[in-house]
Amino acid sequence: MQMLYNSENYAVVHFEVDVAAPTGFPMLPDMPEGIALTRGGYEIVDKHARREIFIEGALAEHFKEGVQALISASPSDEDVDDYLAGYTVLAQQPVVLH
């Protein structure tokens, strides 16, 4: 887990989990034993709306590419927040503290 961005409005955390490859799995006959797979995604929290979203897979790759393009343009905090707002529109999970 790595905090990537934290502003007054949003927080972004990257999760990356190493998963052991299954052994003797019939759909993966050419996969060497002991290979490490990676699985993860991004959690984006809208602090004002108190909502969060976890994205993974193709959507996470699209998010990552967009962030990289944004960073290459030396964005302001407002630019980054505007980009994140496009993803938090999808957020349905309330943020709950316990």
Rank of each mutant, 00 (worst) to 15 (best):
S74T: 04
Y87W: 14
S76K: 05
D81F: 06
A73L: 08
Q2L: 13
N9P: 01
L37W: 14
A58T: 07
D30F: 15
V89D: 08
P75M: 08
E56P: 03
A58L: 11
Q68T: 02
N9R: 13
P29G: 11
A11R: 15
L97P: 02
D82A: 13
A21T: 11
L70P: 09
L97E: 14
T38R: 09
K47S: 07
I71L: 14
F54M: 15
A58S: 08
D18Q: 15
E56A: 08
A60S: 09
E8M: 06
P22R: 12
V89R: 12
A21S: 15
E78F: 01
M3E: 14
E56K: 10
E52L: 08
V80W: 09
P22H: 13
V95G: 11
Q92A: 10
E43S: 02
L59R: 12
P32S: 12
Q68I: 01
L4Y: 11
L59P: 00
L37Y: 12
V67I: 10
E56I: 01
V67Y: 09
M3A: 11
L90A: 06
Q68M: 08
A20G: 13
D82Q: 07
V96Q: 15
Y83E: 02
A36Y: 00
L59D: 11
R51D: 02
Q2D: 15
V45N: 02
V80A: 07
A91M: 04
R51L: 10
Q68W: 08
G57N: 02
T88K: 08
L90C: 10
V45A: 09
F25N: 09
R51V: 04
K47N: 03
A91E: 03
L70C: 12
Y42T: 09
H98T: 14
Y10I: 04
D18V: 12
A73D: 00
E16T: 07
E52F: 04
V13K: 10
A20R: 14
E65I: 06
G66T: 12
V12C: 05
M27R: 13
N6Y: 11
A60C: 00
V12S: 12
L4S: 05
V12T: 05
Y87D: 07
A73N: 01
S72G: 00
Q92N: 14
A49R: 01
D79P: 05
H98F: 15
Q68H: 11
Y5M: 01
A11W: 08
L28H: 13
D81L: 11
H62P: 01
M1T: 05
A11G: 06
Q68P: 03
S76L: 08
V13I: 11
V19L: 08
E33W: 05
I35C: 05
A49Y: 04
P29K: 03
L59W: 06
M27D: 12
G66K: 01
E61P: 02
H14N: 15
T38P: 00
A11H: 07
I71S: 10
Y42M: 11
N6H: 14
D82L: 03
Q2I: 13
D79K: 02
E52H: 09
A60H: 03
M31H: 10
G34E: 04
G34Q: 01
V80M: 04
P22Q: 11
S76W: 04
I53N: 11
A36G: 06
A11S: 15
K47G: 03
A21Y: 07
S7K: 00
A11L: 09
